[in-house]
Nucleic acid binder design. Structure first.
Lengths: 242, 242
DNA sequence: GTTTAAAAGTGGTCTAGACCTCTAGCCCAT
DNA sequence: ATGGGCTAGAGGTCTAGACCACTTTTAAAC
């Protein structure tokens, strides 16, 4: 089940295997899973390696560990009702605004370190960069820089993304369904070049986002930086007691 | 500096020592701290033990690690997780920071129109306004203006909210459990008065939030405006396919 | 049977190595 | 000057042990 010859770390392979066992219902919430020493023996790997996998899954909220007792599958967080994952196009549709785009860059580039790390690929590996100026009602709204990595990504270079939703295209042509994303949002002053593109004053306040998007198999395929005009865009989020 | 005879784990002692060095300014944000092997030698402990301390501090947001380069003190940006409904106090505790508040206003006011609408009460009706300057490690972080409406709200005026969590108080004394919230986030330039209070430059970028909070019966009881320093805060949110 | 003590099993901490990838600086050949 | 390769040093992964704190089970003593 684990492949020691690949470049994928063993602890990561074990994490994915454990995730699968939980997701497929082999182990249900509250169940006791095999002990560190059992897993260590079963897969022929060191206990410390098993611990790294188990501890990271605990951080992710999938496991609960108790000294002397064992490791249990955690109760699922009642954290549903999360904010909906949408791309720019769908986001604008929900706001009843006409969306569009001007492609600024569409090329292969070497993956910058943080991107490579997030997408779990080796650094400097060539990936697709799609940079677009996003428009709402023909007025610039945001700058989106998406780094994409998946098999067949080269074909993205030949496609026209001025009028096309990236997420829609990915699900149609590649079966890649944006399923989950982790996003950071901060307020910064925009730089000169960005301001010009967005038609706002230099140093105006903008929302800067960083998003890592995962497909239906929980594989990260997109890393996106985006800059939204502070005077035109409000980010909406719904919170609930976990 | 580390005591191997006590029951306190070595990695934990090292964490506390590193926290101290950062807090006292020996190492400043962006500084390179000693390598794992240096720390391992300096304290006469194993490298794996050092790694446990460093990795946990990275999780806490105090360090940033780069393969091949080294370990750096992270920029003092506090990541506020919008994945669960939490208040300022709880967020600070997660990062082991001392939180506090200075009450700016604590009075009855006529409900402004948007507030009255959101809380589903008639306009101009008197409600409680609690305005606080929120502090982390004695440094101003945010301005929070909460409009509160529920039966018995008048007693809030007699309470001391300099050291007390509002959400905690509401659930303890009134059985009002913040269960759900709708929040809007935008980037704006701060106004003069706000900048002074927050100790930042005029027109600096800040995160402005509007939050409507509902209790366990889905009754809106709080409408909050808040301004978070853009240089010290970043919001984290998880998105998922409905 | 009940109580108590030992044993077995769990996760938590720790060691002293090993090899890997990646970065940066240095030096040499072009 | 510029590019390329080497190398030292950084963090990342992994091993095969060890002992500890704690819980559960078992077995012995009453």
């Amino acid at each position: 089940m684990l492949d020691k010859t690949t470049a994928i770390p063993i602890y990561y392979q074990l994490k994915e295997w454990l995730r699968g066992e939980i997701a497929s219902g082999v182990w249900k919430p509250g169940d006791l899973i095999p002990s560190e020493r059992e897993l260590s023996g079963k897969f022929g790997i060191s206990r410390m390696t098993v611990r790294q996998a188990l501890n990271e899954l605990r951080e992710d909220g999938l496991l609960r560990r108790e000294q002397g007792r064992g490791t249990y599958v955690a109760e699922p967080k009642i954290e549903q009702r999360l904010t909906r994952l949408t791309g720019f196009t769908e986001d604008m549709q929900r706001r009843a605004l006409q969306s569009g785009a001007r492609v600024l860059r569409q090329m292969m580039v070497a993956a910058p370190a943080p991107v490579a790390h997030a997408l779990r690929i080796s650094q400097e590996k060539p990936i697709v960069l799609l940079e677009r100026l996003r428009m709402a009602e023909h007025e610039p709204m945001a700058i989106e820089s998406s780094y994409l990595h998946f098999t067949g990504m080269e074909k993205l270079l030949e496609e026209d993304f001025e009028d096309q939703s990236l997420y829609h295209y990915l699900s149609e042509k590649y079966g890649i369904i944006p399923t989950r994303a982790e996003q950071q949002v901060e307020a910064v002053q925009c730089h000169e070049g960005e301001c010009k593109l967005l038609h706002i004053e230099t140093n105006a306040a903008v929302l800067r986002n960083r998003r890592i998007t995962y497909d239906q198999k929980n594989k990260p395929f997109e890393y996106t930086w985006s800059i939204y005009r502070g005077d035109r865009y409000i980010f909406y989020v719904e919170l609930s007691l976990a």
